[in-house]
Nucleic acid binder design. Structure first.
Length: 469
RNA sequence: CGAGAAGUAGCACAAUUUGGUAGUGCACUACAUUUGGGAUGUAGGGGUUGCAGGUUCAAAUCCUGUCUUCUCGACCA
């Protein structure tokens, strides 16, 4: 296996990202534009994400289902804001075999309408509520510009769709799942996220409110890393979903949806990676440890494997015929949290060398204490990675009081900017035209002092703006 | 979708200007020796030059179309 130079992260971030994706064997391109091949390491990371999230979904009462992949045009047309948002990027099926279809069908770009169509049939009484469904699937959006993990035409994701008896319950659900995402991203991916509501302009097509998780990449750009939507009863009304409540009157239920995708893998790369390649937070790494035997140490290797296994530490062994230096470099590209160098020199004193991937710091420990030392390091590393990312992010958040200040920051710095905002779309558009920055989310826990940073009129909220992927 | 660039072995490239046997390095395979930061020796394998047409005695090379990738913009979970 070849390990080649990776472009310097500070010289050309875009090229660095592509290099890491390819050289860590996460993805490959295919002959299908905009669809990526997720290779074993990339997919294993996704499986780790799925495993944890699926558990969290089930702990909060959700059930998995599988919906159709195709949406007849008439069904997509039922909710008009929704169609307007998604029709421009829908892929259409017009033939079945050699026969032209009477009604064309799009490949689902998201499944709200399919769930509604189904909910209409199965919700009759308040006793049927809430309905808490989730599906793991792929969706298709005909994106024009694509990049591995960040934006593709075929998206591997999870979408939760729920129906509730009251608006309050639905809002509670929207926020509950929003918090599940936040916990997952911060505790498992070690990615600090900024959370808040999207502006009217940026919210999901058909939603009443969209809550977003915004992560800052190493280069200061934002990546929307997950969303949770409250729909009110728009879709339910459009679809005619009704239930009999306890007071024997017909009512319309309230709806939510929420999703995260393999885009999170892109975030993982761009938040934690370095010039040597991928750096995986221990909790999401498919293998916590890579063992590199140096010379003939087969007897001790078996012993080591057993003690890791007994401690439930997942590992891989690189027993190829390469030189140690080569194996070290490759282990670094692939981001294994801990490398164990098992060589004769240390073993003579009953020691082994542990190297943590994030700091490349070496620790020499006694052979008998490996498992507990590894666990200690993994735990420390998980915390350190989060803190490091948070410190960097916080140092790249600016506050602009005046429009000139905003323009200056946009020109000379990278990162997010906090501003005062009057709430008008004109001001959002102006920022975008002048700086290429878009609204990230509202800042609801800060008081507004002073006028709108853009137009100088009365501001009624604080807002994060920033460039995005 | 607009502007620009590029596609020759797994990768990086040469041969294209001036049409004439597709080549180099790394990687790969076998064996041996090695092993604490990208090994060494010996012997080997791998190509319808992105794809489709056209011009020509002859096309990697010239012409047309098309696809894919990258960069920037527009669009966008």
């Amino acid at each position: 296996m070849e390990v080649k130079e990776i472009t310097n992260r500070d010289v050309d971030f875009a090229q660095w990202y592509t290099d890491v994706c390819k050289k860590a064997d996460l993805v490959d391109y295919s002959s299908v534009k905009g669809s990526m091949i997720i290779r074993p390491l990339g997919y294993a990371i996704w499986e780790e994400m799925q495993k944890t999230l699926d558990r969290m979904f089930k702990e909060t009462g959700h059930e998995n289902v599988q919906m159709p992949m195709f949406i007849p045009e008439s069904l997509l047309n039922v909710e008009k804001e929704h169609v307007k948002g998604f029709a421009p990027e829908a892929a259409w099926v017009t033939y079945g075999g050699s026969e032209k279809l009477e009604e064309r069908m799009c490949v689902r770009p998201t499944s709200e309408v399919l769930f509604c169509d189904h909910y209409k049939k199965i919700i009759k009484t308040y006793r049927d509520l809430p309905k808490l469904y989730n599906q793991w699937c792929t969706i298709v959006r005909w994106e024009k510009t694509t990049r591995p993990f960040l934006r593709s035409r075929e998206i591997l994701w999870q979408e939760g769709h729920t129906m509730h008896r009251t608006a309050e319950e639905a809002i509670e659900e929207t926020l509950r799942m929003f918090n599940v995402y936040k916990t997952f991203q911060e505790d498992y991916l070690a990615i600090p996220v900024i959370t808040g509501r999207k502006t009217e302009k940026e919210k999901f097509a058909g939603a009443e409110a969209t809550y977003t998780l915004e992560a800052m990449m190493y280069d200061g750009n934002a990546l929307q890393n997950g969303t949770s939507h409250y729909f009110g009863d728009h879709f339910a009304k459009a679809f005619g979903i009704k239930f009999t409540d306890a007071d024997n009157t017909l009512k319309t239920p309230y709806q939510t949806s929420w999703g995260v995708s393999t885009r999170m893998i892109g975030a993982l790369i761009m938040v934690h990676g370095d010039d040597r390649g991928l750096v995986l937070p221990p909790k999401i790494a498919p293998f916590k440890v890579i063992i590199i035997p140096i010379g003939d140490v087969s007897e001790k290797l078996e012993e080591l494997k057993l003690s890791l296994k007994n401690a439930d530490i997942t590992y891989k062994v690189d027993d190829s015929n390469k030189t140690p230096g080569f194996k070290f470099a490759e282990a670094e590209v692939k981001g294994y949290p801990i490398r164990i160098e098992l060589g004769k020199r240390d073993l003579e004193q009953d020691k082994v060398t542990l190297v943590r991937r994030d700091t490349l710091e070496k620790t020499i420990v006694s052979f008998d204490s490996i498992a507990s030392e590894v666990n200690k390091l993994l735990e420390m590393m998980q915390k350190d990675m989060f803190n490091k990312a948070k410190i960097r992010r916080d140092s790249m958040i600016y506050d602009a009081k005046t429009y000139d200040e905003l323009l200056d920051i946009a020109k000379t710095k990278q990162g997010f900017v906090k501003i005062n905002w009057c709430g008008s779309e004109e001001c959002e558009n102006k920022i975008k035209e002048d700086t290429a920055m878009k609204s990230r989310c509202l800042i609801e826990d800060e008081n507004v002092t002073g006028p709108c940073t853009v137009c100088g009129k009365k501001a009624n909220t604080r807002l994060y703006v920033g460039k995005q992927y």
